[in-house]
């Protein structure tokens, strides 16, 4: 199936990326929103109250100019430094599940560091791409590596693996071989597993 990597209206990844939380603080008072009501919470006099909201809500408040947000940990100056130094050693999935997509949405908001974030995203992708391809094509047991990839890289990785397998089959067995549909063979394996579990 043709896979669309670009975020679109129906893309689950894009929706999930916009659900990532950002720490922010309000400049103006916002009334009539229950879960933002801080009057009952203990007041900390020294620091201004901070709250974590998902990205799509932040977007709403930015349009009303009533919020200020901090760049999340994965994109701040320290991590940008780490990524620039060597992007290959970072566990992106742990850092942020939708690292590239969330970063892209983030850099579209108005923030003074937006430009740097964007640049880091592109450079990180370029630096890591070679390693991703290398893993996909050459290592058989690649679960430990796979766990460190972000969602976008994972889909590239999976596509690369399938393509490599197709190429291998072609080189060893030639073309024109008819095979059981992948969906059915997976379905059977699942059934077999279920019946074994039942026993």
């Amino acid at each position: 199936m043709y896979r669309n990597i670009k975020p679109h209206y129906f893309s689950i990844d894009a929706i999930m990326a916009a659900q990532e939380k950002i720490q922010c603080s309000f400049i103006k008072n916002v009334e009539h929103v229950d879960f933002l009501d801080m009057t009952n919470a203990e007041k900390d006099e020294e620091s201004d109250p901070k709250i974590e909201l998902p990205l799509w809500m932040i977007k709403v408040f930015i349009a009303g100019k009533s919020i200020q947000f901090d760049i999340p940990k994965a994109y701040n100056e320290i991590y940008r430094g780490v990524l620039t130094a060597d992007a290959n050693v970072v566990d992106l999935f742990k850092l942020c599940k939708h690292f590239y997509l969330f970063g892209k949405f983030l850099s579209q908001l108005e923030h003074r560091e937006a430009y740097e974030v964007r640049r880091t995203l592109i450079q990180t992708f370029i630096d890591r791409f070679k390693q991703t391809m290398d893993w996909a094509q050459n290592i058989d047991d690649n679960l430990p590596c796979f766990n460190r990839l972000d969602c976008l890289e994972r889909s590239i990785f999976n596509d690369a693996r399938v393509a490599q397998q197709h190429l291998n089959t072609y080189l060893t067995e030639g073309s024109g071989q008819m095979e059981i549909a992948a969906m059915i063979s997976n379905y059977r394996k699942r059934k077999m597993h279920e019946s074994r579990v039942l026993e």
């Binding site: 009539h32 929103v33 799509w56 809500m57 709403v60 408040f61 349009a63 009303g64 009533s66």
Partner: peptide, 11 residues
């Protein structure tokens, strides 16, 4: 009108 509250609900 509490504009922010309305906008948030709409979103």
């Amino acid at each position: 009108l509490p504009l922010d509250a309305i906008r948030l609900r709409r979103a």
